[in-house]
Design a protein around this nucleic acid. Structure first.
Length: 494
RNA sequence: GGCCCGUUCGUCUAUCGGUUAGGACGUUAGGUUUUCAUCCUAGAAAGAGGGGUUCGACUCCCCUACGGGCUACCA
């Protein structure tokens, strides 16, 4: 049997890092098992729907390189792939459930329930609509059949609730943790169909997973508490249950709660894969390679057997094993995420890096030929942590220094800077630029000046700071003319 | 409050009853480099606490503590 998994986000805003990881694990599981990765849009609550979020989900998955095999965009035979289009299906199954006495009508309005809830909270905690009190509410169990039918005919609003019988042991199997056992008396008669006739998550989810022939449900740990409800639903329908996998949550770096948008804002890292409506920057814009981002996320709460932590998507698939998934939540670590990205960049083929650099710095091609850009790529490759660093790393090749590091200037002042710059200028003038290194060595020896001082002076004159790649190689790239110009600019300054 | 899940260096993790508890990020100290980055070497750094079971527990069981999740006609 082919494995079928699904990622089922609801389009209520941008997909965040946790969602992306859930999608990733579904994808990995599918690919590892030659299965099918389905994307289902859970838009039963139209009130909460946010324009653009469905597109955003597709765009994010595409950026990450983990697009679904079946979805609204490439439907298979299990459609529709949007829950808002499946209401007829739900209706059919709810009818059957009602007939089997697996569910019942309830007419209680919001005020009644709110009041009951408040009352219970004062006394002992959470209110539950269940076997203990359903007799005192207005529903098809407490009302006569005639009254129930009359109300429905009269158009009195109602919901449909799951009929949970007390004191039964419900067993939920999770693939990465121990069997979850719970007494059904703890459960609530969950609303299955809302007053507007649309299903709640629990109902739609179970029916869809069954109808779409999902074999393994991989979702976040926040769903673990509703597993018993789902198990009950499968049993009442008489359906075979899929396997369940509840992924540990991604926590804030502080460990306090799930990773949140707020936290990302505060600490300066994105929590979304790609830009969301000019409001939030994503990992893409921040300068993460999709493969690197996936690499980091795949290892949050999951260990890899391989000795190398840096892996391509293909490697991640090969190594993927549910047995390696952690049980406890994992804190997000932006420093490590950046390090992984840096490692991926370091391993990029020169051609790939060159094309990224050309894209980021379009003006580079005006001043340099392909060979030179390759050299630039080589000079800066080890220094890029985020792709956005490319911009600043390229500045020294394109412009003469706008300002000079004051501290260094002061330090060098003792050496009669003006004269030294002048001599260097002459040196560059008279030497072949490709042989500059030897020339500088000779110069130091003849003039009896320390190598350090000469190189620092040259560097500060050419790029303005004391950081950066091999200054001789930089000079080779920018050429004799630019170098002389820059030395002249420095000379005028001193 | 109730229910559920979890707990190994600061962080991500290895260990599936016998290990000097290993690796990675970060951090500290050296080295390489004209500088910075890279790279190399070394160091500090962990089994929440208490009971069992066992010849022997990080590993199995129980309790406590702590953390997280859920507790909507949201998903």
């Amino acid at each position: 049997m082919t494995e079928r998994v699904r990622f089922a986000p609801s389009p209520t805003g941008p997909l965040h890092i946790g969602g992306l990881r859930t999608a990733l694990f579904n994808y990995l599981y599918a690919k590892k098992n030659n299965g099918v990765f389905v994307l289902r849009i859970e838009d039963t609550d139209q009130k909460r729907k946010v324009e653009g979020s469905e597109e955003y989900i597709f765009d994010s998955l595409e950026w990450a390189g983990i697009s679904p095999d079946e979805s609204v965009k490439n439907p298979g035979k299990h459609g529709p792939y949007r829950q808002s289009k499946r209401n007829d299906i739900y209706k059919k199954y709810v009818k059957a459930l009602l007939e089997k006495k697996g569910a019942y009508y309830a007419f209680d309005n919001a005020e009644v329930l709110t009041k009951a809830r408040e009352l219970d909270e004062e006394e002992k905690g959470a209110f539950k609509y269940n076997y203990e009190n359903r007799g005192s509410f207005e529903n098809s169990l407490s009302l006569s059949q005639a009254e129930t039918e009359k109300r429905i005919d009269d158009g009195v609003p109602y919901v449909i609730r799951l009929w949970v019988s007390p004191n039964e042991e419900i067993i939920g199997e999770d693939e990465i943790r121990n069997t979850v056992r719970i007494n059904s008396s703890e459960l609530e008669d969950k609303v299955l169909v809302k007053a507007d006739g649309t299903p709640t998550y629990h109902l739609a989810n179970v029916i869809d997973d069954h109808c779409m022939e999902i074999t393994t449900v991989i979702r976040g740990e926040e769903w673990l508490p509703s597993l018993p409800i789902h198990v009950l639903l499968y049993e009442k329908f008489g359906w075979e249950k899929p396997k369940f996998v509840h992924l540990p949550l991604i926590l804030n770096p502080s460990g306090k709660g799930k990773l949140s948008k707020r936290d990302g804002d505060k600490n300066g890292y994105p929590v979304f894969p790609i830009r969301w409506k000019d409001v939030f920057e994503g990992y893409k814009e921040k300068g993460f390679l999709p493969a690197a981002h996936l690499n980091y996320i795949a290892q949050l709460g999951c260990s890899s057997r391989g000795e190398d932590e840096i892996m391509s998507l293909k490697n991640i698939i090969d190594e993927f094993d549910l047995a390696n998934v952690q049980k406890g939540g994992a804190r997000f670590d932006y420093e490590k995420a950046k390090w992984v990205n840096q490692q991926h960049i370091k391993r990029l083929k020169k051609e790939e890096l060159v094309s990224i650099i050309k894209r980021k710095r379009k003006d580079l091609e005006k001043s340099f030929n392909d060979n030179e850009i390759h050299e630039i790529a080589e000079l800066i490759q080890d220094r890029i942590v985020l792709l956005e660093d490319i911009e600043s790393l390229c500045v020294m090749f394109l412009e003469s220094p706008k300002k000079y590091d004051e501290m260094i200037l002061q330090r060098l002042e003792k050496q009669d800077l003006g004269e030294l710059v002048n001599k260097l200028k002459k040196l560059v003038e008279n030497e072949e630029i490709s042989k500059l290194k030897d020339a500088v060595f000779r110069f130091c020896k003849n003039e009896n000046i320390g190598m350090g001082v000469v190189m620092q002076t040259l560097r500060i004159a050419v790029v303005g700071t004391l950081f950066g790649p091999d200054i001789i190689r930089v000079i080779n790239v920018i050429g004799k003319y630019s170098t002389l110009e820059r030395l002249k600019q420095m000379k005028n300054l001193t």
